[in-house]
């Protein structure tokens, strides 16, 4: 949740664009250069969804599917990024949180 976790997590992601604004933890995923959803491969999709799982602003991610968590965030007016819903609509994306298996 702290900035240290965010920056270390960001470094792990392959091919990340540097144009991402250095914002407080909890800003969610927002690809600044916005590559189209179709151009991302499975690994990048999973990495972006993992970022959504790790964002504590939307609550604990364990035990709920990513879609349920996204819909709850919409219900609580937390404005989760719409890209996450688009990524979840892809057949290759894992519906469960990265902490569940």
């Amino acid at each position: 949740m702290s900035s240290a976790v965010w920056s270390s997590f960001r470094q792990k992601r392959p091919g990340s664009e540097t144009a991402r604004p250095e914002s407080k933890a909890g800003s969610g995923t927002k690809p600044a250069a916005a590559p189209s959803i179709e151009s991302l491969d499975a690994e990048e999709v999973e990495a972006l969804l993992r970022q959504f799982d790790m964002t504590s602003k939307y609550g604990p991610s364990m035990g709920v599917t990513r879609l349920e968590r996204w819909e709850r965030a919409v219900d609580l007016k937390l404005n989760p990024p719409k890209e996450v819903k688009e990524l979840l609509d892809l057949p290759t994306s894992n519906p469960k949180s990265c902490f569940d298996w």
Binding site: G59, P60, M62, G63, V64, R72, L76, L78
Partner: peptide
């Protein structure tokens, strides 16, 4: 029933 109660507490706080 295999969900943790942290979800409920989170929702309660946010609500």
């Amino acid at each position: 029933y295999d969900r943790q109660f942290a979800q409920l507490y989170f929702y309660r706080l946010l609500k």
